[in-house]
Amino acid sequence: MNSLLLHIAARFLSWPLLIVSIWILYRGHNLPGGGFIGGLLAAAGFLLYDLSGHGRPARGFFSLSPFFFLPLGLGLAVLSALPGMLGGGAFMQGVWLPGFELPLLGSVHLGTPLIFDIGVWFAVIGFILLLNGTLAGEETS
């Protein structure tokens, strides 16, 4: 697939897609979005870059292997489950920092569910990249 339009468009769209994806991930707690949708969007950015003919399979940030993202995502998700237990609560019980105000973002709540969602985000990216890399690798060889 060698389309100049797509080639150029991909260069300009990939990074904005990633930023949108992170925004969707963050806002998911209150508005439509979240780690799953955000992860799919980020993966879409990487895949777009790949499909537009930049020559090598989509590898995500800094050419990291999907085998890096999958354990990272699962590990973050499991880690986020532990603070609740340390505080004497149940496994995966949410723990929140006190809310504070930030310009542009407004009222901010940070807590373990957000870390969990980031884990989901990474896992989904790894999933799509690994599948795509595997299947596309077959096609090219």
């Binding site: 998911g28 707690h29 979005g33 979240g34 998700a77 499991v78 949410g94 957000l114 969990f116 989901v120």
Partner: peptide
């Protein structure tokens, strides 16, 4: 309880987080 207005997401990452995991 979960400081989230998006019920779907709260279910996914908090109420039923074990399922999501």
């Amino acid at each position: 309880l979960a400081k989230g207005k998006n019920v779907v997401n709260v279910i996914l990452v908090d109420f039923r987080a074990l399922d999501t995991l």
